[in-house]
């Protein structure tokens, strides 16, 4: 944000800091999403608490950042791209925080079932799903880091994989209803649903960046 008059260095620094903090928060959430995936597919019950514990600093960071954005909005009277960015930042913060919560919810399902009874097919689908949603989320964080509007524009399409895999997972779970029991079915439905939601949040984050950069939301119901 080099301006010819170099008038608002300090304010520019503040905005840069907000962006850097968003990337950092996003990376923390992404890491927890991957860990949640591992907990599910490998049944690492002993690591459930670690995932839940890791969400605490995420929440703290989220509240801290939200207040900072709020303060900048109040004190610096941002306009135009700065205003779009800060408004997008509040939404992105929310999406990130929700994603973090979803990762926690996923591992809680695992604990409730005392490990998910599964077979190779289900394992594979859950693995694919967790990986796809984590990748979607990574992409979103990348969009924030680089202020890349293109990622948000292609996000909806990119997310189709998650939707497909989720569908496949639901079908597979339904087919094994008798074998794994109702409770496990419900848990797997939840897990699938949560991963899919995480991917959706990723899509939204990327689209908020598109809005911040271009002033317009990408087409589609982001």
């Amino acid at each position: 944000m080099e301006s010819a008059f170099d008038t608002r260095h300090h304010y520019d620094d503040e905005l840069d800091d907000i962006r850097a903090a968003l990337v950092e928060l996003g990376s923390m959430v992404a890491a927890n999403i991957r860990r949640a995936g591992v907990v599910v597919t490998e049944g690492r019950l002993n690591e459930v608490d670690a995932v839940i514990g890791a969400d605490r600093p995420i929440n703290a960071r989220y509240h801290d950042l939200e207040e900072k954005v709020f303060t900048i909005l109040a004190l610096q009277q941002p306009v135009a791209s700065d205003l779009r960015f800060l408004v997008a930042a509040t939404r992105i913060l929310y999406e990130m925080e929700r994603s973090g919560d979803l990762a926690v919810n996923i591992v809680k399902q695992v604990r409730r079932l005392d490990g998910v009874p599964t077979d190779l097919r289900l394992d594979g689908l859950v693995l694919r799903l967790s990986d796809a949603s984590a990748r979607m989320f990574d992409h979103a964080v990348e969009a924030v880091a680089t202020m890349n509007a293109a990622i948000g524009i292609g996000a909806e399409q990119e997310d189709e994989e998650t939707d497909t895999v989720t569908g496949d997972l639901f079908t597979a779970v339904t087919e094994r209803q008798d074998a794994i029991g109702l409770e496990a079915c419900v848990a797997l439905f939840y897990i699938g649903r949560f991963f899919e939601r995480i991917a959706d949040h990723g899509v939204n984050i990327a689209q908020h960046i598109t809005f911040a950069v271009t002033g317009e939301f990408p087409d589609g119901d982001g």
């Binding site: 503040e14 800091d17 690492r44 670690a50 950042l65 900072k68 303060t71």
Partner: peptide, 20 residues
């Protein structure tokens, strides 16, 4: 392992944002 992926929270710098 989970520990490997866990970001070192102590090392992450607190964003320098004034106005608080």
């Amino acid at each position: 392992t989970l520990e490997d992926a866990s970001p070192s929270l102590a090392a992450t710098r607190s964003p320098r944002v004034t106005g608080g």
